[in-house]
Every structure is written in C-alpha cells, then in structure tokens.
Computed example of a mutant assay.
Amino acid sequence: MKVVLLSTRRLPPSYFDTVRADLGGRDDLALDVVAWVPPAGPVDGLVNSFTLIGPGKMPVEAAPVVQAVPVVDAEEVPVAVAESAKAPAPEAVVDESAAESTATEADEVAEATAAAEGALADDAAAGGESGGTTDGEASAPSAVAPAEVAGGDEAAPAAPKPAPKPRPTGAKRVVKAAQWRARKLRRAGGKMLPTAIKKSGPVKKLTQNRKADNLAKTYWDRVLGRADVMTRIEQADVVIALDGGSVWAGWQVGQRKPQTPVVLGVPAARRELDRLVGAGQE
C-alpha cells in the first residue's frame, strides 16, 4: 500500500512511527512525504521518500569521527632510534679544527680592518693638500624632483560603475506603481490601528487565514510544478493532507484523480485503507 502525506509543518522523525502504527502497522506500507519545510531530524529508513519543495535543507546525520590509533610492534625497534640513543650529547663533542678556523678568521678580520683605517688616513691627508674638491660633492646623492617621482607611477583606473537597472515602462510601470501604493497604504493602516485592535481575536484570525491561504496556494503550485511529486501522487493508494496548509493541494488532487481517496488526517486514512483491503480480499 502506497500512502502520500502532504504537509506544510515541521514533522519530527518519531511522527512517522506513530503514523505507521495508526494505519495498522502493515509491513507493505510505503510512506511518501511531500513537505514544505524539512523535518526536525534525519528520516532515513523511516519513510520511503521525503521530497522537500519549500525553503531549507534536509538534515543530515553527522557521522562519528574515528581517530586512527597507530599500532606499534614491540619486536621491531627502529634503527635510527637505537643509534641516536648510543650517540653522545652534542655538548660533549669538541671540534679542534673548528676552533682553529674561528681564531684564524678573527685574525684576518683584524688585519683587514687595520689596513682599511690606514688607507682612509692617507686619502684624508692627500685631500687636505690638494683642496680642489670636497667630499660633500662626491658623496652627495642625486636629488630627485617630486614631480618626477609622482609622474613615474601611473594612476590606477577607477572601477566602472554598474549600469543602472532599467525602469519599467508602459503597463508594467502602472502595475508596479499600483503595487507600491497598495503596500504603502497597508503599512500606514497597520500603524494607525490601535494595539488592542491588532491583538484582538478576529484580526488575528483574519491575518492567519490570509497567510495560510497564500501558503496553501504556493504549496500547490510547487507540487504541480514537480513531475516526480505528481508521479508519486498518481501511483498512491491514499493521499493524506495533514494540516490546513495542504488541504488546498489535497482538494486539487481529488479533482484530478476522483478514483484516489484524498482525506484529511490519519484516522480517515485508516478507514480508507481498511475499505481497500476489504475490497481486495473479496
């Protein structure tokens, strides 16, 4: 027996076990769910299929993280570890050749420094005698004009501005203007109403009915636009509308398939299943 559940509310995974029990707990019972919102938890193995036609994503059961533990064989001893254990500490090793080379390098640096100082003194004496040139002129760095520095770097081009969205024209402009005025009047009317009227029972009921009506029509449009969902409904033995938001879709299905029972609620579906089973046995 194939049963299709139409729902616009969030259903917990345990609900499907309750539905199976209320429908008689048959082993050949296959549940196909067409829902507007995802379930409250993973439903793998609880239903035959769960088709989400509204906003949101299906919940996925997180897999447990298993950390791999390396297995060490006591009989196998790494050679590198054994050799490092036998080697002496680095502080105990003294390299005599390294010490000699360090001392030789220090002597060479001292000799080079003394030679450089003597050469600088000779140059200073020769410059004082000649007096023709000054060190400032020779060592002064060439000045660079700020204009040259600024002109060397090219200015980055400015990013182009996005093209403006084309405005509606003709009849579309009139429709947009009417919708804008209607929204403005609705908001203004809501602000002008006293709080006591807004929270009154009749006003709340009207608001809920309007929202439910919009959801019911949107839900049916999504169902009608999905070929896979319509195929499951055509193959179903019973179609159950579980809430007020799915009643409109159930009524539309009943008009399209008069031979398929479309009911509201699980108890009515149980009666239809018993009738079908009894008719099949006869």
Rank of each mutant, 00 (worst) to 15 (best):
V72D: 12
S97F: 06
A74S: 12
V33M: 04
V93F: 01
A82L: 08
G54V: 08
A98Y: 08
D32K: 09
T51E: 15
A92N: 11
A68I: 09
V33G: 00
V60K: 07
E91S: 11
V60M: 05
A40N: 12
D95H: 02
T51Y: 06
V66P: 07
A87C: 03
A35I: 07
A80D: 10
A68K: 05
E91K: 11
V93D: 02
T51D: 14
A40K: 08
D44S: 11
V47A: 09
G45E: 06
V71S: 03
V33T: 09
L46A: 14
D44M: 00
L52D: 06
V81W: 03
E75A: 12
V33S: 04
V71T: 13
F50K: 08
G41Q: 12
E96L: 05
V69W: 07
D73L: 01
V77I: 14
S97N: 08
E96R: 01
V69Y: 06
V69H: 14
P90L: 13
A74W: 05
V66F: 04
D73N: 02
A87F: 01
S49Q: 07
E61K: 07
E100N: 12
Q67P: 06
N48I: 03
L46G: 02
P55G: 15
V47I: 00
P90C: 08
P78W: 07
G54M: 12
E75R: 07
A98Q: 14
V60H: 06
I53Q: 14
P64D: 10
S84N: 13
A80F: 01
V79E: 07
P78I: 02
V77A: 14
V65T: 13
A99C: 00
G56Q: 15
L52W: 00
A85G: 02
D44E: 15
P39I: 13
E61D: 13
A62S: 08
V93N: 06
P70K: 04
M58G: 03
D95A: 09
K57W: 06
P42M: 05
V81N: 10
A35V: 03
V33W: 01
N48M: 05
G54S: 12
A92C: 03
V72S: 12
E96M: 04
P70S: 02
E83W: 13
P70E: 15
A92D: 10
E75W: 06
